[in-house]
Design a protein around this nucleic acid. Structure first.
Lengths: 248, 248
DNA sequence: TACAGTTGTCTAGATCAATAGACATTTAGG
DNA sequence: CCTAAATGTCTATTGATCTAGACAACTGTA
C-alpha cells in the first residue's frame, strides 16, 4: 500500500510547541522508513509547506533531531538520516533481556547503578508473595544497545533465597546467570502490566532522552517452575527506540 | 512503601509547556491513587511550591484537567477528583475486547466508523498470508467504556472467507460474533507488536484526547486454530486511560 | 562557470507561556 | 459572625515560540 500523502496537521495552543510536534512526526516517519528511497529528509521548504508552518519552525524541529544524532544537515545538500532503527524487544513466558535483542544490536551493555536491601512493602511484597517486612534485594540497572540506552529497571528479589543477587549480578552481568548461581536454573514470566507516559526527569537523564519523550513502563513478575515468585521488576523502555513484541 | 515526597521537577525550554507537564504529572498522581486520602488535589499554592512554578501555571494545568473532566474546582473548597480510573486491558492468546474489560466498566460501546474493500498490500497481506492484490475487508472502529473512548482500530479480514464481515459486525457489534456468523468459532492471538508515541490529530479527535496525549499502538494478528491468519489489526489505545496486562 | 536547489544566518514583529503581585469571592469551621 | 483557606480575576512584565522576509553560503550538475 502506497502511503497516502495525507495532510500533516499539527495543533496549536496545546502546550506542546509546534517544533516538538513536528520533530516527533519526522522521527516517526524516519523509523517507518518513509524516507528510505533517498535516505534524506525532505527539504525544509517542503516540510514547512506540508506541516503548514514557517520554515524556521521546521528548522527548530530538525535541530532537535540533529541533537539526538538522528539526522545531520549539510549545507547545500540536504538533511541526511543517520539512524532509523527501533529495536524490537520480545515479551514472552521466557523473557531474557540479552537473548531477546539478538542480532538487532551488535553490543549489549548492562550497568548496575546501585543496589540495596529493603523491607518488603505492600504492592511489591504482595507480588512476590513474601511476608510484609521481610528483606528484599533491590537492583537498579540501565541497559543499552550499541551504546544507546534502551531501558532502565528497578528489580526486587527475596533476600533469603537470593542473598548474593547484587554481587552475582555485578560479576556476571545477567539476571539469568545470577539466578543460576543461586541454584535456580529456569524461571518464567508470570505477569506483565504496561503503561505509557511521559518520561520523568530522572528517566530523561538515565536514558539520555530529550525532554517530552515517552517511556513504556512494564511491571512484571517472574516465578520459578513451581510458581513461586522470584523477581518483581519495573522496567522503563525508551519508547522511540523500542517496540515490544508480545508473544502469547 | 510510603511514597517518597520526591522533588517534582519540571523541565523548561523543552518545547513542552510547563502547564502541560504539570497536568500530566497530576493526572498520573490521580491515577496512582496518591490523593485518595482526601479525594482532592492539593491546593494550588502547595502544588506551585512542589513543582517550583507560579500558581498561575498550576492553574493552567488544573484547567486542562478540568476540561478533561478529571477534576472539578470549587471556589473556597478546593479541587476535587471526579475520575481516577485507568482501565486494565488484558492481552493474551484469547484476547476478546468486551470480555477483557469485564467489571471495570459498566457499559461498553463499540462504534463502526466505516468499512471498505481494499486490495491486500505488502505488510498487511504478508501478515494475513494472502496473495498480493486479493481483497480484504477493512473495518474502522472506536470502542469506549462508560462513554469514554478507550481505543480505535483498523482491522483487515480476507474477503473471500469473511465476505459479510462489515454487515455482521455492524449488526452484532462484536468481531467474535461476526466470525461465528461465518462459521469460525474460535481464534487465537498469534502476534502483537507494541509502540508508544504521541497521538496524531485524527486520533486526538477519535479518542477525545487533549493534544500532546500518548497512544499505545498494538499491531496484532489473530489466526484460527489451524494457524491460518484471519485478522490483522492496528489498535490505538488512549495511554492515560488504559494499562495493558500481558498474559503469557 | 552559471545556475538551481538547499541549508545557514540575520532582523523584526506577533502571539503564547510564565512570573509577579494584588485583591475579590466562596467555603468550612470555630 | 469572623476568619482562615481556598479558588477566581485582573494587570503588568519578561522570555519563548512562531511568522515573515531577505540574503549569504554551499553542493551538485549542466
Amino acid at each position: 500500500m502506497k502511503r497516502m500523502a495525507l495532510k500533516k496537521i499539527v495543533e496549536r495552543q496545546t502546550g506542546v510547541a509546534l517544533w516538538r510536534q513536528i520533530a516527533d512526526r519526522i522521527r516517526l516517519s524516519i523509523s517507518n522508513g518513509d524516507y528510505d528511497a533517498t535516505g534524506m529528509v525532505p527539504p525544509e521548504t517542503v516540510l514547512a509547506q506540508e506541516f503548514g508552518v514557517n520554515r524556521h519552525t521546521v528548522r527548530s524541529a530538525l535541530a532537535a533531531l540533529a541533537d539526538e544524532g538522528l539526522v545531520r544537515a549539510v549545507q547545500g545538500r540536504g538533511t541526511m538520516i543517520e539512524r532509523k532503527d527501533r529495536v524490537s524487544y520480545p515479551i514472552s513466558r521466557r523473557t531474557r533481556f540479552s537473548q531477546g535483542l539478538g542480532r538487532q544490536v551488535k553490543e549489549i551493555g548492562t550497568r548496575l547503578l546501585g543496589h540495596a536491601e529493603v523491607p518488603a512493602s505492600g504492592e511489591i511484597g504482595a507480588a512476590l508473595a513474601v511476608s510484609p517486612g521481610s528483606l528484599l534485594i533491590e537492583l537498579r540497572t540501565v541497559s543499552s544497545g550499541d551504546g544507546r540506552p534502551l531501558s532502565t529497571s528497578v528489580s526486587y528479589y527475596p533476600a533469603d533465597r537470593f542473598p548474593r543477587m547484587a554481587e552475582e549480578y555485578a560479576l556476571l552481568g545477567s539476571v539469568t546467570k545470577a539466578f543460576a548461581a543461586h541454584g535456580l536454573d529456569d524461571y518464567v514470566r508470570v505477569s506483565t502490566e504496561l503503561v505509557a507516559r511521559h518520561a520523568e526527569a530522572q528517566e530523561l537523564s538515565l536514558l539520555q532522552l530529550s525532554p517530552g519523550a515517552i517511556v513504556m513502563e512494564a511491571q512484571s513478575v517472574n516465578a520459578d517452575l513451581d510458581g513461586k515468585p522470584v523477581e518483581y521488576s519495573r522496567t522503563r523502555f525508551a519508547a522511540d527506540r523500542m517496540k515490544l513484541r508480545i508473544e502469547t
